[in-house]
Simulated scan of single mutants.
Amino acid sequence: MLNKLRDSLQPTMEKLGSGFASTGLSANFWTGVGLALALAAGAAYASASFGAGAYVAAVIGGVLLLVSGFFDMIDGAVARVTKQASKKGAFLDSSFDKIAEVVVFIGIAVGGLANPVWCMVGLGMSLLVSYTRARAESLGVELKGIGIGERAERMLILAIIGFIPFDGTPANDGALEWAVIIVSIVAGITLVQRIVATAKKL
């Protein structure tokens, strides 16, 4: 769903890409920065179990997750501007994205910000969405933009809903609980959409 927005922002992203490319740092470096911020987001979410307030942990984790998403777009823009797009870069970007998702969901579960079972469901559905695209594309079926909830949408849901100042008792009744449930549902629907789309094209 956000692919259309990305297309409309393409001129802006190219300018940003040029700016970041002027530092002399490679696209892979910015990919690593995005991963580091996602790891920090996971740690922030987990900190709710180590003295930080649930809402504070959710907000800090959400901000870090949004900034991580920004660098997830910057690395591609830098690669295009510098004409350094490569299979290695694409592989690292995709792999780091999955590592980031795993860490974020684990952080939310460890922090007690959502029911661990829902976290497992949300993570499982998210990884299956990514797997179906990878498997379909290995068979020659393009799935980019197929489905209501790609990775960017799912991370936005977690980050933004976490900003809502609603902490239930226990913490599992808070806003992130609902965010994880919504992500699980959206990812499940996307999984079905991608399976159907692929089956029709094979």
Rank of each mutant, 00 (worst) to 15 (best):
M1K: 06
L2Y: 12
R6K: 08
P11A: 07
T12N: 08
S18H: 05
F20Q: 05
S22R: 05
A27Y: 08
A27S: 12
N28P: 09
G32P: 04
L35D: 10
A38S: 13
L39I: 14
A40Y: 04
A41I: 01
G42H: 00
A43G: 15
A44N: 10
S47M: 12
A48K: 13
A52Y: 11
Y55V: 05
A58Q: 13
A58C: 11
A58N: 07
V59A: 12
V59Q: 09
G62Q: 01
G62T: 01
V63T: 03
F71L: 09
K83M: 12
K88V: 15
G89H: 05
F91S: 07
L92F: 15
D93H: 02
F96M: 13
D97N: 09
K98F: 15
E101G: 12
E101C: 07
V102E: 04
V103S: 10
L113C: 00
V117P: 15
M125K: 03
L127T: 03
L128F: 14
Y131H: 06
R133K: 06
R133I: 07
A134F: 14
A136P: 03
E137I: 00
V141Q: 04
V141A: 00
G147Q: 05
G149P: 06
E150G: 14
E150A: 15
R151N: 00
L156F: 01
I157S: 08
L158C: 12
A159L: 09
A159I: 06
A159P: 05
I160Y: 10
I161N: 01
G162M: 07
F163Y: 12
F166P: 10
G168Q: 03
G168W: 12
A171N: 15
D173T: 01
L176Y: 08
L176D: 11
E177V: 03
E177F: 12
W178Q: 06
W178D: 06
I181R: 06
I181P: 04
I182W: 02
I182F: 08
A187T: 10
T190P: 04
L191N: 07
R194W: 02
T198Q: 03
K200W: 15
L202G: 12
